[in-house]
Design a protein around this nucleic acid. Sequence first.
RNA 1: GGUCCCGUCGUCCAGUGGCCUAGGACGCCGGCCUUUCAAGCCGGAAACGCCGGUUCGAAUCCGGUCGGGACUGCCA
Length: 476
Amino acid sequence: MTVRLRVAPSPTGYLHVGNARAALFNWLYARHHGGTFLLRIDDTDLERSTPAFEADILDSLRWLGLDWDEGVEVGGPYGSYRQSDRLERYQSVATTLVESGAAYHDDRTTEELEALRQKAQAERLPPGHYIRRPESPPAEGGVIRISVPQDEAVVFDDLVRGSVSFEGRDIDDFVILRSDGTPTYHLASTVDDVDYQITHVARGEDLLPSTPKHVLLTRALDAAEPVYAHLPLLFGPDGKKLSKRHGETALSHYRDTGYLPDAVFNYLSLLGWSIDGDRTIFSREEAMAAFDLADVSSNPAVFDPDKLSWMNGEYMRAMDSKTFREKVRPHVEAAVGRALDEDEWARFETVSDLVQERTRLLPEAGEQVVFLFEDFAGYDPRSWEKVMSKEGGPGILDAAAQRLGAVDPWNAESIEETLRAMLEELGVGAGKGLQPLRVAVTGSSVSPPLFESLAALGRDKTLERVARARAQLLAS
RNA sequence: GGUCCCGUCGUCCAGUGGCCUAGGACGCCGGCCUUUCAAGCCGGAAACGCCGGUUCGAAUCCGGUCGGGACUGCCA
C-alpha cells in the first residue's frame, strides 16, 4: 500500500518555520516511500483566514522545494482540498454522529460552561469532567459535541513516541460543529484525513493531546486509523515554543533576506533528525533516501539562526560562479540603488568569485561592492581612526598615487607587483602600507582583496579617491 | 490545578548494555595562513539533571525525584 501524507496549514498567518519543518518531514517520508504528498488548506476559521496568507504558504512551500502531488491549485481525484469548500460534508458527518448517538446537541452558554470548568479546576479534576452530555440534550441548535466514553482508555501508537495512552475521563466532550454550523478543527481535519485516505499524520507535538479525540472520531466514522508521528516542537532560545517574539518565524522572511532554499532545507531537516552521526551538509536526495519518521527524535529543538547562516554560507560557496552571479545581481543593484549597465556588471564579475567566498547572505554581497559603483559619502569612522595616521598616511598615499598612475596594464597582477615594490622601497609592512589605501578607496578597512578591487574600480576612480583621502587627512 | 510529552556539551545531533578516558556540527577561545575581512588548517574549553535499583558491566533497562514544555476554546 502506498503512503499518503499531508500538510494542512491554516491561512490565518504566514507559513511558520515550525510548519515548514513539519511539511518537510512529511514530504521526505512521502518521497522516500514513493508515496503521495498533498497540501490541504484548513480554512475552517473563516474569520481569520485570508487569501494573502494562503498565497504566502504556497509560495513558501514551493520555494523550499516541497512540491505536492495533490492539493490546492494542482487538484486531485478527491475533490476540493480546501476545507471551506466542504462544509456540507462536515455537517452531514456531524448529523450522522448525532443520529447514531455518538454526538449530541448542546445549547449551554459559554458562561455556564466556564463555571463548570472553574468548578472542575477547584476540585482538582480534569477540566472536562463536568462538561458531559446533559440529562436531556436539545434536539437541535447550539453546538454538536462528541460523547466521549469515560471508562475506556484511548491508546495509539506514535512513530516517534511509542505507545501513548489517555484515559477517557480526561478527555472532554469536545465540540465538532459550532453553533454557526461550521466544523471545528477536530472534525474537519479528521474527516479529511479519512476521506483523502491519509496513511500517516506527522505534525507538531502540540497536537498530541488532541490526538485521542481524532482517534475516537476516526473510530466513530468506522475508518482505518492513520499512523501518527508527533514531531518535537521548535523552541526559541528561551525554551518556549517558537513564536514571533523570538524574532522572525515566517519562512518567507528567510527567502526575502537572502537565504538559499537548499540551505534552509538542509538546516530544517536537522531539527529533530540526523542523517547519520557525522554528516551535517547533505543534499535533499540524500535526505530523501535516508529519512524515516521513526528516526525522528522526541525532544524539542531550539532554532539556531547562527547555525542557519553558517550553513547558508556553506551553500553560498558551493554554488558555481554563474549561479551565484545570477542570484546576487538583484541584491547588488539594490545595494547600489540602481540598475547596473553591462560595463558595470562586467566589472563586478571580475571580483564576483572573491565576493562569493565572503558572502553568507545574498545582500552582504551587495554591500561589499557598492564602492565599485558609487562614491561613498563618508569613511567608516572606526576604520579611518584605526588606519589613517597623520604621520605616515599622506606619504603612503602619495607614493601609491604616484606609482599607480604609471601602472600598465591596469590589472590586478601589475597593481600588486607595483604596490609590493613600493612597500619594499618604503620599508613598510603590507598591513601598514596597504590598509590606508583600502580605506581611501573603499571607505572601510574591511573589503574584498585590494588589488582586484583597484583593478575593478579603474585607474581614474582609484586616483581620485586616493587624492580625496589625502586631502581629508591633511585637513583633519 | 489536571492530562500528556521530554531530559547527552551554551545550541543541534550521534550513541539503542561493554567499541564511551562519550563522537560530529554551530557557536566560543587560542594558533597558523594572510593585504583587511572571510574561507581554510591545527588545537582547546564544554554534556550523560539527581537518587536508587537490575547487571560482571549503564548515557543506554526499571523506579522515584527534580526540572522543562505542550495542551487544557464554539483557534488550529
